[in-house]
Amino acid sequence: MNLNILIAGVGGQGNLFASSILAEYFTNQGHQVLAVETIGAAQRGGSVVSHLRVSDSEMYSPLIPAGKVDILMGFEILEMLRNFQLLSVDGSYLLNDYKEPTVLCNLEMDTYPSDEMITAALQKSGKKGYIIKATECARQIGGSLLTNVVMVGALCQLSPLFHRQEVRQVLAGKSPPKVRDLNLKAFDAGGSLVSGMS
């Protein structure tokens, strides 16, 4: 087994929690796990990228080298696009249809790419991928903070690499009691969002 997952989002989206669930799941499955996150200056709204590497042999660089990402999870559109060139030849993406405007876009000094431009660019790239409304789904369940869990739920439904129930168990174990039920609901909702897609 050799798998590289990159999660790209903005601060406050629970990027690290999502990565830690997947890391614990793969560790439980008996694989080696190596991870790192790049958080820059740790304020909300900045870019946050988690690298998660899974293998059965020794791994070296915690950062996934360019062209070696198998699964690119985008919690925010721009952040996924920013890391898109890291995808491998056969890599695929799972994108949350959510835009967090940048400061400069708000100032009209920069332009957030339009939906048409994004769709066209992704199509032209020839990469396989899924676009889901995870944040919208999370808000319906209990708040945008559940976006990360919806995304993980969707990933586990789409990819045959996951035993859904076991990831769910890891999630239950790692969730603070106060939010456990909500997290599990979000996880299931993520699965339902994509059922029939793969």
């Binding site: 360019a66 062209g67 721009l78 696009l81 920013r82 898109f84 060139q85 890291l86 995808l87 491998s88 890599g91 940048t102 400069l104 876009c105 920069d110 332009t111 957030y112 790419p113 431009m117 994004i118 066209a120 660019a121 992704l122 032209k124 790239s125 990469k127």
Partner: peptide, 9 residues
């Protein structure tokens, strides 16, 4: 590496 034809702010 994958290429993407789009300007990213």
């Amino acid at each position: 590496t994958a290429s993407l034809d789009i300007k990213i702010p």
